[in-house]
Simulated scan of single mutants.
Amino acid sequence: MKVFITLLALAVASASAYEEVIHNKDITKVNKIEGRITNGYPAYEGKAPYTVGLGFSGGWWCGGSIISNTWVLTAEHCTGSADSVTVYFGATWRTNAQYTHWVSRNDMINHNSADIALIRIPHVDFWHMVNKVELPSYNDRYNDYNGWWAVACGWGGTYDGSPLPDWLQCVDLQVIHNSECAQTYGGLIQDNIICVRTPDGKSTCGGDSGGPLVSHDGNKLIGVTNWVSAAGCQSGHPSGFQRVTYHLDWIRDHTGIAY
């Protein structure tokens, strides 16, 4: 089968004998977000206080997760070419944040070989609208989370081709084994990837890039939103995330955060 995947920020196709993907970021230089939380539900205020909006100087929108008072975790395809970013904290309504911080290129750390990145932020105090999400502990580094349920949240349209909603959307998704995901995407699925099923048109998509995938059990950040099938967010093909447990050493080395 020959398909495409969509990076949920910048539209990038990668050659494959199987399905290809596109990142969940907006299509380059056009006023359209390629992707969104589809067929999810509006989040109540304070549901996902660790979720931040990221408005980049290049004109694209992504999400991210607060992992400490001074760090946000997101996707490298969001930060890679950015000169600066405005971080929106506690913004259930997309641009109506509790407060914002502007961050320069110097405070972004891109992974050299994986679609994950860190943003150093000015110290933020935590309360019910703005709070961190914990990383998995080192005891869980070999947990594949197969069959676990998790919640993804972000801003974007609610169906393929829709306008962007202003209200934060969330969707509950079930993690699948990488061998099942590889049946669709082949060799793209390596140990650093975690995939979820997308039944009934429920999925992440563009504008959600870099956002959180948080386990129902334990409320741990297990994934960073990366891509969906270029066949569409509602195609029923699995969507992909960076597997946070795979990157625990990298995160610790740059931030000192470890459990």
Rank of each mutant, 00 (worst) to 15 (best):
L8N: 13
A11S: 14
S14Q: 14
S14E: 13
E20D: 10
D26R: 12
D26K: 12
T28Q: 14
K29A: 15
K29G: 12
E34V: 13
G35S: 06
N39S: 14
N39M: 04
Y41N: 08
Y41T: 13
P42T: 08
P42K: 10
A48M: 13
P49H: 01
S57H: 11
W60T: 09
N69I: 00
W71H: 04
L73N: 02
L73C: 05
T74Q: 03
E76M: 09
E76R: 15
G80E: 13
A82M: 04
D83Q: 13
S84E: 08
V85R: 03
V85C: 02
V87S: 06
A91Q: 07
R94C: 06
Q98P: 00
N106Q: 15
I109F: 12
A114E: 11
D115N: 10
A117N: 02
L118Y: 03
F126W: 09
W127Q: 10
H128L: 01
L135N: 06
P136S: 05
P136N: 02
S137K: 11
Y138G: 10
Y138R: 14
D144E: 09
N146S: 15
G147S: 14
C153M: 14
G154K: 05
G154W: 07
T158S: 15
Y159C: 10
D160P: 08
G161P: 08
G161N: 04
S162M: 01
P163W: 04
L164F: 00
L164M: 14
D166E: 15
W167E: 13
Q169P: 07
L173E: 09
Q174D: 02
I176N: 04
N178H: 10
S179Q: 08
T184W: 10
T184N: 12
N192Y: 11
I193D: 04
V196C: 12
T198M: 02
P199T: 10
P199W: 06
G201H: 01
K202Y: 01
C205D: 10
C205W: 01
G207E: 08
S209H: 01
L213G: 08
V214E: 03
V214R: 05
S215E: 02
K220W: 05
K220L: 15
T225C: 11
V228T: 14
A230S: 12
Q234H: 00
P238C: 05
F241N: 06
V244P: 04
D249T: 11
I257F: 03
I257Y: 01
